[in-house]
Computed example of a mutant assay.
Amino acid sequence: MELKRPKMSNPVHFLAFGFGSGLAPIAPGTFGTVAAMPIWWLCAQLPLWGYLAVTAAVIAVGPYLCGKTSDDMHVHDHPGIVWDEIAGLLITMIAVPITLWGALAGFVAFRVFDIIKPWPIGWLDRRVAGGLGIMVDDLLAGVYAAVVVQLLIWQLPTLFT
């Protein structure tokens, strides 16, 4: 089955598809996470409250962006919808030092949890519908990944400075 293409001139589709990164022919979720890295880097320059405010805003608009795009395309959770990866990575990267090791640890941890979907991530992914359903697994993967990255920072502080 050939998937429908979004209307990239539609700002909702453009954002839901991660500024076009979700159009990648393979691994769109990974490309969406790659697109989230510069967003993380820019937001990480803010004070923590600013970072958290941006992250909260990304999460708040996510169900609408993902749900509307999914409805417009008549496909539930189109693989190219990657706004959820952006939100999940921002959760993962809360208070992570802006270093190469911080970026790599967060990227890898988030992708691992997003792909393997340990309980209850996979369970929620199968049971929650609509825009929230598209978002929820990545939000929780971001929380799991954040815990792992913070434990790494705590255990190996010199690696992350």
Rank of each mutant, 00 (worst) to 15 (best):
125 D>I: 02
82 V>D: 13
152 L>H: 03
22 G>W: 04
98 I>A: 14
75 V>F: 11
95 A>W: 14
3 L>M: 04
8 M>P: 08
76 H>P: 14
19 F>T: 09
28 P>L: 03
66 C>S: 13
81 I>V: 15
18 G>H: 10
147 V>A: 13
31 F>W: 14
93 M>Y: 01
135 M>K: 03
10 N>V: 05
134 I>K: 03
94 I>E: 03
69 T>E: 04
74 H>W: 00
55 T>Q: 07
35 A>W: 09
33 T>S: 15
87 A>W: 01
78 H>Y: 11
49 W>T: 11
55 T>N: 10
152 L>F: 11
22 G>R: 09
2 E>V: 02
29 G>A: 03
65 L>W: 04
132 L>T: 15
51 Y>R: 02
77 D>E: 13
15 L>G: 01
23 L>S: 12
81 I>L: 13
99 T>E: 07
35 A>V: 07
48 L>H: 08
58 V>G: 05
127 R>A: 07
86 I>Q: 08
157 P>M: 01
69 T>M: 06
61 V>Q: 09
104 L>V: 15
71 D>I: 07
69 T>L: 02
3 L>D: 11
85 E>P: 09
52 L>V: 14
3 L>Q: 12
159 L>T: 14
76 H>F: 09
19 F>S: 13
17 F>Q: 06
99 T>V: 12
121 I>E: 08
69 T>K: 00
152 L>V: 08
78 H>C: 12
117 K>A: 10
92 T>Y: 07
152 L>R: 10
63 P>F: 05
43 C>P: 00
63 P>H: 06
144 Y>F: 15
92 T>R: 06
84 D>K: 00
128 V>F: 07
124 L>E: 10
138 D>I: 02
72 D>P: 05
152 L>E: 04
145 A>Y: 07
17 F>D: 06
160 F>N: 08
13 H>Y: 04
25 P>H: 08
49 W>K: 04
74 H>K: 15
3 L>T: 01
100 L>R: 01
13 H>V: 04
126 R>H: 08
89 L>T: 09
27 A>D: 08
28 P>N: 03
24 A>R: 01
144 Y>S: 09
51 Y>E: 11
118 P>H: 03
149 V>Y: 02
157 P>D: 12
31 F>N: 05
79 P>S: 11
49 W>Y: 13
35 A>L: 07
56 A>M: 11
125 D>S: 09
93 M>R: 03
151 L>V: 14
102 G>R: 05
112 V>T: 07
131 G>C: 06
120 P>W: 00
29 G>V: 02
53 A>I: 06
119 W>F: 15
16 A>P: 07
151 L>P: 00
101 W>F: 13
1 M>N: 13
134 I>C: 07
51 Y>K: 05
42 L>A: 14
140 L>M: 15
98 I>C: 10
139 L>S: 11
99 T>F: 00
142 G>Y: 09
